[in-house]
Design a protein around this nucleic acid. Structure first.
Lengths: 122, 122
DNA sequence: CGGTTATTCAACTAAATGGTTGACAAAGGT
DNA sequence: ACCTTTGTCAACCATTTAGTTGAATAACCG
């Protein structure tokens, strides 16, 4: 029921062909045949790739006669950037705090010389 | 030789366990044992996950006696955000331009009524 | 209706992935 | 010198994945 949608989004973009398809769709909608053209792949393979992108919510399909043009959905990207930025920020902030700690430590370094207690747990 | 590093980065983050490990490492370095504790997984499995993160450049390892604490590397995140934001922006800009086109079209819509030419190819 | 174009479905295959168990290595603690 | 802790390596297994070929569906073009 509630599988994290990021699973599919990240794993969809893990494939270079699919990333390339996304890149191309960013500059305009395209049909399966058009998308398949540059690759040394069967149409069926590209159709499958497109389905993966669709399932991940990165792409939507419409209909135009026999064609089913693919359209890039930009909203899902927000999910990713939010996740990424959150931990990127956390890690950077922690890095800055660590710098402060180290600055403090060197300031009163005499207390440090005999501290041989390692409190790694908890 | 020159495989796109984004392959490994995205595919590393496609796994929810690995994403969770990253989330936890964002608030501080941790050893394999510490990382493994919350999961219903063997240490070996977690060790493997950690290796995937390391190969993707998301994590680095140091040494502290028998322990090999893992440390989150924030820089690689930039690669991802740059890729994502580029196409996100492209898609959004195109969407805005499309709006303008549609606005123009409705303004002189009388010319449209008989345009039955479809120039999909090229 | 009959043919063509665009796309998907189904079945199969090879390789990659995520997990296991069991043995091994490396470093400390005593 | 042992024993313990921490982690990795190796071999194996089940599932998923990226690709194939071949048949089927869907919608247009005469």
């Amino acid at each position: 029921m509630s599988a994290d949608p990021l699973n599919e989004v990240f794993s969809a973009l893990a494939d270079p062909t699919r990333r390339d398809m996304v890149a191309r769709l960013a500059s305009g909608d395209a049909t399966v045949n058009e998308l398949a053209e540059p690759y040394d792949l069967t149409i069926q393979a590209v159709s499958k790739h497109l389905r993966v992108l669709e399932d991940a919510g990165l792409v939507s399909r419409t209909r135009d006669a026999q064609r089913r043009p693919a359209h890039l959905e930009a909203e899902v990207f927000d999910l990713m950037t939010k996740w990424i930025e959150r931990y990127q920020r956390e890690a950077e902030e922690r890095y800055i705090r660590l710098d402060e700690v180290l600055a403090n430590m060197s300031r009163n370094s005499e207390t440090l010389k005999k501290s041989r207690n390692k409190e790694t747990e908890k």
